[in-house]
């Protein structure tokens, strides 16, 4: 293990921050969901790195569960996007202010 674990933590923090910025600044809902995928992947990198360095396989099992949840999130998220697009022919986040008074 030549690479210190802090490198992995910094890499994962960087990817997570990029994903967070993407969620905050983009208007396209699809890109926002893609950015959420980025954040999930950042946590996965962390899990696997710590699992490998601690010699404990539980971290890898948790990545497995994170994958499951990511798949479910994508299925429901894309279904919502399609329903929204049918409703107002747009996936620009600025067009959806139904809950705003």
């Amino acid at each position: 293990m030549d690479v210190p674990i802090s490198y992995y933590v910094v890499l994962s923090g960087l990817v997570f921050s990029i994903g967070l910025i993407g969620v905050l600044i983009r208007r396209n809902i699809i890109i926002i969901l893609l950015s959420v995928e980025l954040m999930l992947n950042a946590t996965n990198i962390n899990f696997v790195a710590f699992s490998s360095y601690l010699g404990n396989l539980s971290g890898q099992v948790f990545v497995f569960f994170a994958l499951t949840v990511a798949a479910a999130e994508v299925a429901v998220g894309l279904a919502i996007i399609i329903a929204l697009y049918r409703h107002s022919s747009s996936i620009n986040i600025d067009d959806f202010r139904l809950l705003k008074w």
């Binding site: 921050s17 910025i21 905050l24 600044i25 208007r27």
Partner: peptide
Amino acid sequence: EEHFHGQFIVGLFLGCVLFAEAVLLV
């Protein structure tokens, strides 16, 4: 159409601050 949201600057700033915090903690 579209590209970046109007809160571009704020979002970028928040992201950078969060990343800096993470690096500092590590």
